[in-house]
Structure formats: C-alpha cells, structure tokens
C-alpha cells in the first residue's frame, strides 16, 4: 500500500540522482584548473560593475585571470594568490570580504539576526503553547 505511494517519488529521485551521476562523471579536471576557476569567482573585475573576473570579458579581467594561472603555475597557494591581488588593489578586490574588525558586523550579523529571530520565535511558540493549554483546560 505504502509502496504505491512512494514508488513514483522513488523513481523520480533515482532519475535525478542518476542524471547527476552521468553529468558529473563526464570528465575530471585537473586540480589546477579547479583551483583557478574557484579563484576566478573570488576576485573582482576592477573595471566591471561588481562582477567577478570569472564573469567578464574585459581586458583587465583577462589579465587578472592570466595572472592567476601564472601564480598557480609558480606554486603559490590560494591565500598567497589572493594576497598578491590585495596588496595591489586593496581589500575591495576580494568578492568575499576578509574578516577584520570592520567586517565583524558583516560576518557575524547573519548569526545575530538568526539568534534574535530564534529568540522571538521561541517566545511566540511558548505563548501559543500556553494559550492552547489554557483553552483546553
């Protein structure tokens, strides 16, 4: 009985997982290619409006991408490559702002918002529960 219900969903799920398998099996990229691609999304194209260099055809974005591959080939770590650009362009070149006193609010704000919201939610739930109990009494 129950299998009647779940069978179509199982089928759908299997299909989805299989497609994901097929599509991701296709090729293995080299570690360096993967690293470069990840770094492209972390560096801002300095002549574009807030886009990463991964998403721009601008000359400077091409230069920056080329420089990333040069630095990877020179055995620099991801952190060293980010630093290379930060010393030349400043923090604003990073799509992901660094954790500093100035950005504490940015990085811990989400948690704070959530904790605050969760507190209020807890309060709402408790009150609703007590209203329910009162009514049923």
């Amino acid at each position: 009985m129950m299998t009647n219900q779940t069978r179509p969903i199982l089928a759908l799920l299997c299909l989805a997982v299989l497609t994901s398998l097929m599509t991701s099996f296709a090729s293995a990229q080299t570690v360096n290619e993967i690293r470069a691609k990840a770094l492209y999304t972390e560096l801002r194209c300095v002549v574009c409006a807030g886009q990463a260099i991964a998403e721009s055809n601008a000359e400077l974005a091409q230069d920056m991408r080329a420089q990333v591959t040069v630095l990877i080939a020179a055995n620099k770590s991801d952190a060293e490559i980010r630093d290379w650009f930060v010393t030349r362009y400043g923090d604003a070149v990073l799509m992901n702002p660094p954790l500093k006193p100035l950005t504490l609010a940015l990085w811990f704000g989400p948690l704070l918002i959530f904790v605050l919201g969760a507190g209020i939610t807890g309060l709402v739930m408790m009150r609703a529960q007590s209203r329910l109990v009162e009514k049923e009494r």
Binding site: V46, V47, E59, L60, D63, M64, A66, Q67, F85, R88, Y89, G90
Partner: peptide, 12 residues
Amino acid sequence: DSLNALNFGLTG
C-alpha cells in the same frame, strides 16, 4: 603581458 598594469593596481 600586463604585469606592470596589475603591479600598479591599474583600473583602466
């Protein structure tokens, strides 16, 4: 090779 451009933090 645009190396000086990047070294100078060129923005255009």
